[in-house]
Design a protein around this nucleic acid. Structure first.
Length: 475
RNA sequence: GCGCCCAUCGUCUAGCGGUCCAGGACGCCGCCCUUUCACGGCGGAAACGCGGGUUCGAUCCCCGCUGGGCGCGCCA
């Protein structure tokens, strides 16, 4: 890093000093990563994958995770979206160590732009957006790559003066060196991009505002980012950014580009981002732990499986174990994983959420353990609370049989062996077995076709309630 | 159109020239727990895109084709 680069914009006490060092071979100090969404909408499963990969990476290595809002586009950025994104991340279990906004750091970008200009790497260009658009289309039509021709560099002083005199304001482009930029990608290994095939990127608009590229690099430098983990839609940007990093700081952080997700049909995800928004998954009652697990495990060498915590998940995630091709994200698989996640959650992990559903008190844990294996969403625990201690309208399929069941009901108190003894007696009395024996009882006792084992439900339900329901009473 | 990346069971993948008549996970099917639905346990079916090379020998290396993802913005 340049010695003379001003340090005053760097994060001070928030981040341990060693974290400011850029990546150098094997990691010596805890990493600093960032997730940098633009607050122009809610996040979907694809964004969540990036956020989680960063968070889990930092978490496992005692690193720092920064949430950085790339809100340089004042037209589209909204504070409400930023808040919503933070809420979505929190639901996933991600709490940033630091939150920053690019809109608050204009001075730093001005300073960096001035340095690039002094270095001869930033030049004024006067084409209008329309002109550039037409030019691109013409190049495409001719079968040529749509690359900026650097006409601005060939302007004479007189031409430039005339343009300025006519009121034209320039936008500013970064002068790319025509080299092949190489880096060792944390996911994809040795990578390279030929910058001769790229346009000089516009860093600053004619109105003085910045595009994503420069602020991103400046922030990565000033915040001491050691690893940039992002989607592979950014690989081409990497070449450009490495050149800017080198111009500004002498070195670039380590990059890792994870594979992208497609929808169940194999198409790009952005089109149906709404359907797979974190908010919608949450509204459907999907477990956040399942969303997190599938988001980072799919498309990796690790088997998709339920986890008990994000820490456990962190142990399963490694950038080098991600595959390089797009992977399918199937919502049906998510729902199945969510159910399996639920089936193993200990009471302590869900006590608060259960209490909010009205499942609390001394019997709450026993109820949870009795029903969790049967749930596909946690909210359904409330149904079984109703069955066990609330009111249920029994379904009477065979009144005579139920009457017989009442007449031979064991005396209390009931325990887990009660059900077996009771049904064995009924079998002897009627010769019934299988579905004919159990189905009418389940229907009357719970009002439902399916559910947890009655042997465990019965003691929780109690003798009086059970007998009343078998008699057709709603209790 | 040009560039980058990818190509193994339905899906996510392991495989890094002989160890593969290809391993795991989910899903599916069957059996068991149970004399019910579900949960759980056990077992089974199921794949190397196509065509050329290289090699004694290709899933693994090279080329082409096909298919797919991404990029080529005064978006991020």
């Amino acid at each position: 890093m340049d010695r003379d680069y001003p340090n005053h914009l760097a994060l001070s006490h928030h981040i341990a000093a060693p974290a400011r060092r850029f990546y150098e071979g094997e990691m010596a100090s805890p990493p600093v990563v960032r997730f940098a969404p633009s607050p122009t909408g809610r996040i979907h499963i694809g964004n969540a994958r990036t956020a989680l990969l960063n968070w889990l990476f930092a978490r496992r290595r005692n690193g720092t995770f920064i949430l950085r809002f790339d809100d340089t586009d004042p037209e589209r950025s909204k504070a409400e979206y930023a808040d919503a994104i933070e809420a979505d991340l929190k639901w996933l279990g991600i709490t940033p160590d630091l939150v920053r906004r690019q809109s608050e750091r204009m001075a730093a970008y001005d300073e960096a732009a001035a340095r690039l200009r002094a270095l001869g790497r930033l030049y004024a260009a006067y084409e209008t957006a329309d002109e550039l658009d037409r030019r691109r289309k013409r190049q495409q039509a001719l079968g040529r790559p749509p690359i900026y021709d650097r006409a601005a560099l060939r302007l004479s002083e007189a031409e430039r003066a005339a343009l300025e005199a006519s009121g034209r304001k320039p936008h500013w482009r970064f002068l790319l060196e025509p080299s092949i930029v190489r880096w060792d990608d944390a996911v994809r290994g040795e990578s390279h991009i030929d910058c001769a095939s790229l346009s000089d990127p516009v860093l600053r608009r004619e109105d003085g505002t910045y595009l994503y590229t420069l602020p991103s690099v400046v922030d990565d430098i000033d915040f001491g980012i050691t690893h940039v983990i992002r989607g592979e839609d950014h690989v081409t940007n990497t070449a450009v950014q490495i050149q800017i990093f080198e111009a500004l700081a002498g070195a670039a952080p380590r990059f890792g580009h994870h594979n992208l997700l497609t929808d169940a049909g194999g198409g790009g995800l952005s089109k149906r981002a709404g359907a797979l928004s974190i908010a919608s998954l949450r509204a459907k009652g999907i477990e956040s732990l399942a969303v997190a697990a599938l988001a980072v495990l799919v498309g990796s060498a690790e088997a998709v499986r339920p986890v008990d915590s994000l820490d456990e998940l962190a142990g399963l995630v490694d950038p080098s174990h991600l595959s390089h091709g797009a992977a399918r994200f199937d919502e049906a698989e998510l729902e199945a994983l969510s159910a399996r996640t639920l089936h193993r959650l200990p009471y302590a992990a869900v006590a608060d959420r259960l209490a909010a559903l009205g499942v609390a008190g001394p019997k709450a844990e026993a109820l949870w353990l009795a029903v969790r294996g049967n749930l596909s969403r946690l909210d359904d625990a409330a149904i079984w609370r109703e069955v066990v201690e609330g009111e249920v309208a029994p379904i009477v399929e065979d009144a005579d049989f139920l009457k017989l069941a009442v007449s031979c009901a064991p005396e209390g108190p009931w325990d887990q062996s009660t059900w077996g003894a009771w049904t064995t007696r009924l079998k002897e009395l009627t010769g019934r077995k299988g579905r004919a024996l159990f189905h009418p009882l389940r229907l009357a006792l719970t009002g439902r076709e399916a559910g947890p084992e009655l042997a465990v439900l019965l003691p929780l339900m109690g003798r009086a309630r059970a007998l009343a329901r078998l008699s057709g009473q709603s209790v």
